[in-house]
Nucleic acid binder design. Structure first.
Lengths: 213, 213, 213, 213
DNA sequence: CATGAATGAGACTTCATTCAT
DNA sequence: CATGAATGAAGTCTCATTCAT
């Protein structure tokens, strides 16, 4: 019985994966507006079956988002637990965030919605909160690292941690917006690579012409 | 005749204002998703009357957005044309942007949608483009000023203008996101005032601890 | 007072003419579906003013139709009361009907609706009946003449008058349908002229190959 | 699988039939103006369900029309492929057309709309074109037979085929208009039967009194 | 008399969700 | 477990008609 349960549990998870995978493609591509019909069609399952595995559209949407975050968190963990010096770890985190988002542009674009809170009128606010929470959890990876930087004297003592975390985060996402919209170049390489690198330097070095160095 | 026409034109504009004002409150509050019914109810007019003044929901939405931009542009022009030194003008622009958005939080939140491009599936793309265009027009105010700063030697010659404009813009909006979400304090004053001021300084001074000054 | 009344009556009629003239152009062009708004705009009057002169859209529609019939009736009367022999009168009536309709194609097309009775769901049935009655009244001109033809021995005694009237009427309108649809040629002349003439002859002569004459 | 698909296909067709049948009754009765609500009510289904089977009102309308044509075409084919002499075949075609239309008066009335072209402003022009095309396809049955008649010497060589086809067609529909409107008698029998028969003879024999035979 | 303004009623269409098999 | 079928609720928009000035 237990064995069978485990087996069926596994089977159930496989189904869920099929479904969420279809949902992912469509949600990332076209936003929350895709119809459940479309998702069912893509998953080659009946609409009713979707509801067997996911209580409603929102739950499915959240699941699809989580898939995107899972990949990102992996990168963050990698950067965080590497044996590099703190300064390099922070830099790696910034650049690997950018890199991941460039590889998953559609996911990136979707996350941007959550800064705009009107989602609550389309999505049930519960679902929106979960996604927002996930975003914040990831931002925290950065916040922690900056705190560490202050503690160990690498960064200015008087820095407002929250403010600076936001600056970093928003700079990255802002440039990503441009990069993602830039159809002229394969944005994961070349010109944009430099821009991201230099944006990081600017934030770290200061941007004002410096009388002396 | 001309007199009467002018009069009726005026009257018509007053009506439009009543409608757009109702629309503003609802759109800013709940996003594009509000129904025309709701707007009509708030304006205490019949739905059909709305359609007398605005061709469709999108047109009304755009009008509501424009109201928000009008106020912002005023502030920008003021800052731009003041007789202050460039450095101060730029700072004023940044801070008055923040200030305006804190006073018009709901409007602010709505503008954030346009960075997330899936809007085109809800709004007619024409309408979305108009709003996006308006945002870019405002960003240009900042870009111009930074360009000037580079030309006159105030800012580093090797600065990527677009990138830095984005950094500024996104830093401001990112902090605003936090401030707006922060229900604990009246965010237009006190703590947040300092944070915004210092965020600006950080961006200008560099954020890394500086060995010498 | 009587004078003034007369005067105002006249004035009123002038207005009505302005309105009906606008209505005519639009109804004939686009059918019953034109909106009262459009008509008012074309008449350069306010919508409310139309309702001052015509109780509702249907009444206005009927009035517009009557204008078209008036011209046709004139032709019919002319043909009927001319001093020509009966055979020629009948022929003239047929050809002048065709001629008038070719000159007033739009009016012609509109009259065709009344053979299709679903109009009652769009138009108030009262209005439809009036127009239908007017059509029948005109058909009667032809019927009378055919009756006369039978009486004086010109036409077969055993002819079913109603049936043949219909045949004549429908042959004419059927060909008119084709002619009006034929954009290749100026249908009021040349080829079509011949077709109409010969259609009349066919009906009169019989169409079967005749062994002897 | 194939079995099941076939089965469901069949089931689906049955449903479509239920819907189109309701639509037919209403469309034929009251014209295109009936609301989708009404049709749904008559079919005892929800409005949304209709849209499951028919993409929109027009598609449903066209389907309803096609039902009417299907029956007519059967009759035409029968007449055309019978082993009778040509003269009789043509006559049968004429009379079976009349007969069918008298049995399906409402359908008949509806087809008459398509001669009046303003339909395009109510129906999507695509739908109108389909129906018009179907009408012409049926007219062609007659045209072909007349052509044959000319070729084999039965009919006058100098006959304008299009014109005469129209005459036949329009004579039939014209009389049908009268018959259908004639509420006094059961029009499918008796008096009208004679009228139709004689109308055909008149067209074939010539209608003018013939000096000699 | 003339009209600008307002509207009630209704049209078509979409979609997340449920239920019976 | 899987699904085909059904639907309620909601959305945007149109238009003939009325009313207050």
């Amino acid at each position: 019985m237990t064995y069978l349960q485990a087996r069926s549990e596994k089977e159930k998870n496989r189904r869920k994966k099929v479904i969420v995978s279809a949902a992912k493609q469509l949600f990332y591509d076209k936003g929350y507006g895709v119809s459940v019909d479309e998702i069912a069609a893509k998953a080659k399952l009946s609409k009713a079956t979707l509801y067997l595995y996911y209580k409603n559209k929102d739950e499915l949407y959240v699941a699809a988002m989580m898939e995107g975050f899972a990949g990102l968190e992996e990168r963050f963990k990698e950067a965080k637990h590497s044996e590099k010096p703190l300064e390099e770890k922070l830099r790696n985190m910034y650049l690997s965030f950018v890199d991941y988002m460039l590889l998953n542009r559609k996911f990136f674009r979707i996350t941007q919605h959550y800064l705009a809170e009107d989602f609550d009128t389309r999505i049930s606010s519960g679902a929106a909160d979960i996604v927002r929470g996930e975003i914040l959890r990831h931002v925290d990876y950065v916040r922690e690292m900056i705190n560490e930087g202050i503690d160990c004297g690498l960064l200015r003592q008087d820095l407002d941690v929250n403010a600076f975390t936001t600056i970093l985060w928003r700079t990255a996402t802002g440039l990503l917006d441009l990069a993602v919209a830039d159809k002229s170049s394969n944005s994961s390489t070349g010109r944009w690579g430099e821009i991201f690198a230099s944006s990081y330097s600017v934030l770290m070095d200061g941007i004002r012409t410096q009388k002396e160095k």
